[in-house]
Design a protein around this nucleic acid. Structure first.
Length: 565
RNA sequence: CGGAGCGUAGCGCAGCCUGGUAGCGCGUUUGGUUCGGGACCAAAAGGUCGAGGGUUCAAAUCCCUCCGCUCCGACCA
């Protein structure tokens, strides 16, 4: 039984001005979180208890899925990172430190290298596989912009798990086991988390899913098909491409003056044609070499898709000078007559009467047939999928939603095990490379996502499984010995039944206690006061209920336990 | 890093434009009246005005430099 008068707890009537989203404001106001610096927070006692609840659920489900908990150091020798080349490729996102002997270390942003080196040493036979290990540990990332409290911090707590298998098929099973565990974890946390297809990013590997909590404040966009259940991160989302309508060759390409018209919208208006009759030509650098990409004039290029098509090449923006040197002046470039490689979105396949830049300042070409007038290396899905596009599976329109990424599962294949030469001997005594998967949950982010998804105008509404305490016992007349004695008796009875009780024993007016109880958001509020006893006992109310119910001292504990189920 | 804004008591803010005693609300402490949805009265504590430099008789206020924080874009659990 924790008593407020003894707790390190202060609620705030107003939110600090640097908190932007509701969950951040509420965690600060409810005294659960305090800021230390940008992207750095202290968990106060109440917040700490909620965090431990999330961790415990994760532990239980990881263990249930057959994973084993370990703890690796957060300080990782640079040598390990050099083995995979990520010492360089992680770039500025990784904190690097140097010891007194000038040896370099990474502050763990993740642990593929450490765990792969570990399993390489521990596993030598197929008989020892599969193995999945996990840890719950502080991670460090030098985020360009920490944001929204715990949502994106420089330091955060992550559950990271790693699976090692003999074959791709076996690895798929391990992946599925983790996927299923994630579904259970987020469900037990009271979160509606949606698995969506995702890009693998710098971690690499063949496929991955993110677990997204839908929220307007989320940083990711998700394409969602209500008809068939397809869901994907916008970075990854595909679409059924509808060919642009201009399929008939009508005339030879013809140069027209378009003075000062540089954007697709402007050129379309100037020439009095639809924006999607304009072909948007972009030049980007792939591993430093210029490449042209064509998309319909009303579309955006998805650089990640281009990157995949180009075999993982580093895509970067080309300067206006570089574009001018490669093809022509920015604002008037096009694929006709260029010598650099040209890729086009699938929807442009067969486009035969479109407008492109003429690679001369202030001039465009009418009636361009891509097949006749340009040399397109490949037609691929290259655009950012947006609201209303056709679902790649069923063709129905897709909706765009915002999401908070709370978990991410990856099939890594042999990217890391190959780099470390992490092999085992198969039945025939031949060395084989282990197949790997990795699985992350942002624990601190998950905690905040729970608050983001579960609150009302008065404060937090903790799901019972995560709440720092289950019961908030308000003693309205702390000077009344009889009231205090009966409240204490109920508290002890509840604790004996395994219910965590928080007691507001402050000498404050009732209104203040009610407001604070709503703000802190424990699942059940019990009021003990002279008035409640006149009415027959304790007032019991769930955080989500409109009204309280009177329970006699004899029946209160059982009734409360029942409410918590 | 690019763009925008902010930095004055624990929290929320005013004062700055037009230089001259550092203020308000909440919170905190003490006393009193109150007491079922953020009471009232009285008294009090609490401030390197983000830092450094400059202008000036005089700087929270004007100028310069730096630092920190927040928001919008590229990174990600």
């Amino acid at each position: 039984m924790m008593r407020w008068t003894q707790a390190l707890l202060a609620t705030l009537r107003e939110a600090p001005q640097d908190a932007e989203i509701i969950s951040h404001k509420l965690l600060i106001r409810a005294g659960m979180l305090r800021k230390v610096g940008g992207g750095l927070y202290t968990f106060m006692p109440l917040g700490m208890r909620a965090l431990r609840k999330v961790e415990q659920i994760i532990r239980e489900e990881m263990d249930r899925a057959g994973a084993q908990e370990i703890l690796m150091p957060a300080l990782q020798p640079a040598e390990l990172w050099r083995t995979t080349g990520r010492w360089e490729s992680m770039g500025a996102g990784m904190f690097k430190v140097t010891d007194r002997k000038e040896a370099k270390y990474a502050l763990a942003p993740t642990a593929e290298e450490v765990v792969t080196a570990l399993l390489k040493g521990e596993v030598s036979s197929y008989r020892q596989l599969p193995k999945t290990v996990y840890q719950i540990q502080t991670k460090f990332r030098d985020e360009i912009r920490p944001r929204f409290g715990l949502m994106r911090g420089k330091e955060f707590i992550m559950k990271d798990a790693y699976s090692f298998d003999t074959t791709m098929d076996a690895a798929d099973k391990s992946y599925q086991a983790m996927f299923d565990a994630y579904v259970r974890i987020f469900k037990r946390c009271g979160l509606a988390a949606k698995p969506v297809e995702a890009d693998t990013g710098d971690i690499g590997g063949s496929s991955s899913h993110e677990f997204m909590v839908l929220a307007p404040s989320g940083e990711d966009s998700i394409l969602d098909c209500a008809a068939c259940g397809y869901a994907a991160n916008q970075e990854r989302a595909e679409r059924q491409s509808m060919p642009v309508p201009y399929q008939q060759e009508v005339a030879a390409a013809e140069v027209v003056d378009t003075p000062g018209q540089e954007t697709c919208v402007a050129v379309a208006a100037f020439l009095n044609v639809a924006v999607n009759q304009i072909v948007k030509s972009l030049v980007v650098l792939a591993n430093g070499q210029p490449v042209m990409v064509l998309v319909p004039g009303d579309r955006e290029l998805n650089e990640l898709k281009l990157k995949r098509i180009l075999g993982g090449a580093k895509i970067s923006e080309a300067s206006a000078e570089a574009v001018a040197a490669a093809v022509g002046p920015v604002g008037s470039i096009g694929p006709v007559g260029v010598t650099i490689p040209v890729y086009a979105d699938r929807s442009l396949e067969g486009a035969a009467d479109v407008v492109t830049g003429a690679n001369q300042a202030g001039k465009h070409l009418l009636h361009v047939s891509l097949a006749r007038d340009a040399h397109v290396l490949a037609y691929e899905d290259l655009v950012v999928v947006s609201e209303g596009d056709h679902c790649p599976r069923c063709g129905k329109p897709l909706a765009v939603r915002r999401g908070i990424e709370v978990g991410h599962v990856f099939k890594l294949g042999m990217k890391y095990t190959q780099a470390f030469n992490a092999t085992y001997l198969d039945e025939a005594g031949a060395a084989q490379t282990m197949v790997m998967g990795c699985y992350g949950i942002g624990v601190t982010r998950t905690l905040q996502a729970i608050v983001e998804q579960s609150n009302d105008a008065n404060g937090i509404v903790w799901p019972a499984a995560i709440a720092p305490y289950q019961v908030n016992l308000l003693i309205l007349d702390p000077d009344n010995r009889d009231v205090v004695a009966r409240a204490e008796a109920l508290g002890s009875e509840l604790e004996a039944l395994g219910v965590d009780v928080f007691v507001d024993d402050r000498a404050e007016r009732p209104g203040i206690k009610f407001k604070d109880a709503d703000l802190i958001g424990l699942p059940v509020r019990v009021v003990a006061g002279a008035k409640s006893f006149e009415k027959g006992g304790f007032e019991v109310r769930r955080r989500t209920d409109a009204d309280a119910v009177i329970r006699s001292p004899e029946t209160a504990a059982a009734a409360i336990v029942n409410l918590l189920k």
